[in-house]
């Protein structure tokens, strides 16, 4: 039976492929909901931590909506509310202006437009130099707390190495500048679209006019 033996390897390869597909399908089914939960938990941990203890009673993750900010990519906004009143907004933004690519940041802004806090979520900046923007490695990010577009004035939102009002991470002027620029862009969008940022979420519209 020379013909049959010629097909046997092919049949075996097909069987292995089928086995792999079934196994992976099963594992995907088994892990998918856990992976989703983990991703949500990770995002929630980061967003809650940055709100610095501001009380809120809504589900932050459910409030997530996309928003366009000029010059930033992949932007999402979470809104924190207490009794339906806006308390703060947390922006998840990615700036492409880092020294080695994208830097992903969380920027929390309170009701009045002051920065509550800034956290770096992902980056590929140089270890030992640019990575000192991480909150675990230095307190550089803390200088943004309480700042707003008028404090310092708009044209001073730059690292001090470029005559701005913010400290520069030593030997990482580009990295520092990228983060400062991203926070400034978030604040500018918040200022000009404040009502849209807070209005678009569920409760504000769902209840309708009183």
């Amino acid at each position: 039976m020379p013909d049959a033996s010629r097909w046997r390897p092919l049949a075996l390869l097909g069987l292995i492929g089928l086995g792999a597909a079934v196994t992976l399908g099963g594992i995907d089914e088994l892990t998918r909901s856990t992976i989703d939960d983990q991703r949500r938990a990770y995002a929630l941990r980061a967003v809650s931590a940055i709100l610095a203890g501001r009380n809120h009673d809504n589900d932050l993750l459910d409030s997530a909506r996309p928003i366009d900010i000029d010059g930033l990519e992949a932007t999402t906004v979470y809104t924190a509310r207490l009794d339906g009143q806006p308390v703060a907004a947390v922006f998840d933004v990615t700036t492409p202006r880092g020294y080695s690519g994208d830097i992903r940041l969380l920027v929390a802004v309170d009701d009045g437009g002051d920065v509550l806090g800034v956290r770096v979520l992902e980056h590929r900046e140089t270890p030992g130099l640019g990575d000192r923007i991480e909150s675990g490695r230095s307190d550089w990010l803390e200088q943004f707390e309480g700042k707003s577009l008028g404090n310092p004035s708009r044209d001073r939102w730059a690292p001090d190495r470029r005559d701005g009002a913010f400290d520069t991470v030593t030997s990482a002027t580009i990295t520092s500048s990228a983060v400062i620029d991203a926070v400034k862009r978030v604040l500018a969008t918040f200022e000009s679209h404040r009502n849209r940022v807070f209005a678009e979420s569920g409760p504000a519209n769902a209840n309708g006019p009183d």
Binding site: I16, G17, A20, T34, I35, Q38, R39
Partner: peptide, 20 residues
């Protein structure tokens, strides 16, 4: 095929149970 399937299975498991 066998190696790639094994790696995918382990990657998914790590995402689920060793997320960080």
């Amino acid at each position: 095929l066998i190696i790639a399937s094994t790696v995918t299975a382990i990657d998914l498991s790590m995402q689920a149970w060793l997320h960080d």
